[in-house]
């Protein structure tokens, strides 16, 4: 609700009470009741002193504190960092200043390291047993994705040959913004079953589409394959790991955020100092400024509750 309206509302309700109390003296001393079934001696537009007395404001008000908010913002920073890293890698591949074979090896190494970390988390949370079947499935799926991407690479390379590069830049920018806006930033402990949400699926789709259209600008099949594989690592698998890591101690969260953010700025710096400083500003403001703004904006929170609100039914499920 907007601020101006709430202020006027507050003013109306307080002035009403004073008006009403003066009016009460003028009216007869007969007792007014808040009922409809009784014919009362008061006019129909009589404003009783109890008018709006059941109005409550911000009943479930919980003031935020800075550090938990900043820790929550770390997930967003990490996601933005991965997008920036992806963009830097793409520009290097486009300029042919980066060997695509190296990128394939890095992706494979990332996958193995990430999977090991995942297993470690699984182990500490007690799900180690009865999962060899699941592990076999994971290996099979990863090999399938690997081969499918390899087979599709020539098709993807010429996919948008008829489209101008300007359209591709605009399209991929939109898709990546969509990805960042719809991504699931909740943690495993707080957002139960959140991974199945539609927005999260849309977010992954947008990112992979962006990777595909960008990859179609590259020169050779191997680069296309490397970039899409890298995108799958960053946008499909890393969010899963991040979702689990959200519950890790704050030192690990802060450490990983700082590493990712620093890395994204460092690899962007040789390409363009302007872009690197823009990245750094975006990451810094997301992490430090945005929580402070939310904290400041909370003073304007004004939620109005009263007997007219629909009740929430409580049943034993």
């Amino acid at each position: 609700m907007n601020v101006a309206l709430v202020k006027t509302l507050t003013a109306t309700s307080s002035s009403t009470t004073t008006d009403a109390s003066t009016r009460l003296v003028v009216m007869s001393e007969d007792h007014w009741e808040r009922v409809l079934w009784k014919q009362q001696s008061f006019p129909d537009n009589y404003v009783p002193p109890s008018f709006l007395s059941s109005l409550t404001k911000n009943p479930n008000f919980r003031p935020y504190t800075y550090w938990p908010l900043m820790l929550g913002a770390c997930a967003i920073t990490q996601h933005l960092s991965t997008i920036f890293i992806f963009l830097s890698v793409f520009v290097r591949l486009l300029d042919c200043t980066f060997d695509p074979r190296l990128l394939v090896f890095i992706s494979a190494a990332m996958f193995v390291a990430g999977y090991a970390l995942w297993e470690l988390l699984e182990c500490t949370q007690g799900g180690w047993l009865a999962s060899s079947d699941r592990r076999a499935k994971a290996v099979k799926a990863s090999i399938l994705v690997f081969l499918a991407l390899m087979a599709l690479a020539p098709v993807l390379r010429t996919l948008t040959a008829a489209t101008s590069s300007d359209s591709i830049w605009a399209l991929s920018a939109c898709l990546l913004i969509l990805n960042a806006a719809l991504a699931d930033y909740s943690s495993a402990a707080r957002g139960v079953g959140a991974r199945e949400r539609l927005t999260s699926v849309l977010s992954i789709n947008a990112a992979i589409s962006a990777a595909v259209v960008l990859a179609s600008r590259l020169q050779d099949d191997l680069s296309v394959f490397a970039l899409v594989l890298f995108a799958v690592q960053l946008f499909a698998l890393f969010p899963l790991l991040r979702y689990r890591l959200q519950d890790a101690p704050s030192s690990i969260q802060l450490g990983s955020t700082l590493t990712l953010a620093a890395f994204s700025v460092v690899i962007a710096a040789p390409l363009s100092a302007t872009v690197a400083s823009l990245f750094a500003t975006a990451l810094g403001s997301t992490t430090f400024l945005a929580p402070a703004v939310l904290l400041w904006a909370q003073q304007y929170k004004n939620e109005i509750r009263g007997p007219w609100d629909a009740a929430t039914p409580r049943v034993h499920s």
């Binding site: 509302l9 008006d19 409809l36 059941s54 009263g306």
Partner: peptide, 24 residues
């Protein structure tokens, strides 16, 4: 149509309470 409805309407439409009547 009710006193609760009147409070609700006064808040929603930002009206002066004197101009709002209750007739069930």
């Amino acid at each position: 149509v009710s006193h609760t409805g009147r409070e609700n309407t006064v808040l929603r439409a930002n009206l002066a309470p004197e101009d709002v009547y209750v007739i069930p």
